[in-house]
Computed example of a mutant assay.
Amino acid sequence: MTTDSFYDSLPKVRSFDSLSAPEAFAPLPPDWHLCCTDIVNSTALVAAGRYKTVNMIGAAVIAAMRNALQGEAFPYIFGGDGAAFAVPPRHQETARRVLAALRSWTETEFGVSLRAAMLPLRWIRTEGQDVRIARYAVSDHADFAMFSGGGLAWAEAQMKAGAFEVAPAPQAEPPDLSGLSCRWSNTPARNGIILSVVAQPAPGADPQAFARFSSRLLELAGELKDNGHPVPETGPRLRFPPAGLHLEAQSSRGRTPLILRKLYLLAHSALAGLIFFSKRPVGGFDPLHYLSVLKAHSDFRKFDDGLKMTLDCTPGIRDRIRQHLEQAAEVGLVQFGLHEQDAALVTCIVPSPVEEGHVHFVDGAAGGYTQAAANLAAAFGGRKGAA
């Protein structure tokens, strides 16, 4: 295995529960670079009702890199108010250009400041941290990277302190965000609560003890229908005009006037809405099959230097999850944050609606991971303290 083929060579794990074990992860090669992004003052944007914008920008980081690498697989993870990814040496400058363009674009298009940093794995390991990766296959056509080792959390803290900054590029062309979409309406909770969970190992926590804790947390979520998956079999709601039409137009317009892009997307959404309403295949597109794949390809739970979940949760399971977290926190094993809302939202990357490689990022619709992480930071002084 060469350093460039590391990610392609990783085995794809089919059981999410098995990812709680530290041995499920492999260390990134030392000459790779870790890249991370984060929206400045995202908690204030959430409070102002702009969480769909926050999620869109976080997903845009992934969409821009996917397009820049022309579909080549690389490890990435969506964090709600940002995203992180890793690249081998040959893609280092591409990643730098994409991040620089994104920083200028978010400021110009949305008036939102995006932090971005890039740092070598060797530096992270010098500081006693690590970045380890696993590939979780949700189907034969899509998988998500999982991160462990503490290195990503350390890198985010360095980014917020101003280290390893990727400077914005004001003259750069807008990033290619083809396939990025947010037309679905919010998905209401069917069990009463959409629960955002952020659980991280406390400093010095034993990895095996945290693995046992994570397994128990997943068992509790497993008592919910579909493990608490917030997206129903019928998919999210699609209203007309779509709730995220303006955001999608801003994200995909490039140099096109905004009104023209909105008119195009309005017509496209009307046609798509008719197809979904009819529930009948048109050409190579089967709306019912698409919705079933959407659910399967949604990242409602992930390992991101800890365990994050967006659960459609009953009050009873919520109380048991909180008790499990509090007990682990009392013995110095875990730091955690929770946030409750009444709906989830989905942001999508769909390179082609007739192919099955589309992926979907799930978060709570009223603060989600951003607010849960802020609650963690308020309680424990965690890594999101400067969100």
Rank of each mutant, 00 (worst) to 15 (best):
G332I: 05
T347L: 13
A329H: 01
G332E: 05
G332K: 04
E330Q: 10
C313T: 14
V334S: 06
Q335V: 05
V331M: 02
V334P: 05
T310S: 13
L333H: 03
V334E: 03
G337T: 08
E326L: 05
P315H: 08
T314E: 13
I317Y: 03
L325F: 02
A328H: 00
G316F: 06
A344V: 11
R318H: 10
G332P: 03
L338Q: 12
R320C: 05
C313K: 11
C313G: 12
Q323H: 06
T347Y: 13
L338C: 08
T310Q: 15
D319N: 10
A343F: 06
Q327F: 00
T310Y: 10
R320D: 10
L333C: 03
L338K: 10
D342A: 12
P315L: 07
R320L: 10
Q327H: 03
I317H: 07
E330P: 00
R322Y: 02
E340D: 15
H339L: 09
E340N: 13
G316V: 07
G316P: 00
L333P: 03
Q341Y: 06
R322S: 06
V331F: 00
I317C: 08
D312C: 14
T310V: 15
G332V: 05
L345V: 15
F336I: 05
Q335I: 04
V331Y: 00
D312S: 14
I321C: 04
T314D: 12
L345K: 12
H324C: 10
A329K: 01
P315S: 08
Q327W: 00
T310M: 15
D312G: 14
I321S: 02
I317K: 05
V346P: 03
H339P: 05
V334M: 08
A329S: 10
A344C: 14
P315R: 08
Q323F: 01
G337S: 09
V346Y: 06
E326I: 02
L333W: 03
Q327N: 04
A344H: 12
T347Q: 11
L311R: 06
A329T: 02
G337Q: 06
I317N: 07
A328F: 01
R320H: 09
Q341H: 13
Q341W: 05
C313D: 11
E330V: 01
L338N: 13
E330M: 02
L325A: 08
V346C: 11
G332L: 04
L338G: 12
E326A: 13
R322H: 07
Q327S: 04
R318D: 08
Q335G: 06
T347I: 15
D342E: 15
M309N: 09
Q341S: 15
L338W: 12
C313N: 13
L338M: 13
Q341T: 14
A329P: 03
G316L: 07
E330I: 00
R320Y: 08
V334Q: 07
C313Q: 12
T310R: 09
G332T: 04
T310P: 08
R322F: 03
T347S: 13
T314H: 12
M309C: 15
L345F: 14
L311G: 11
Q323I: 00
R320M: 09
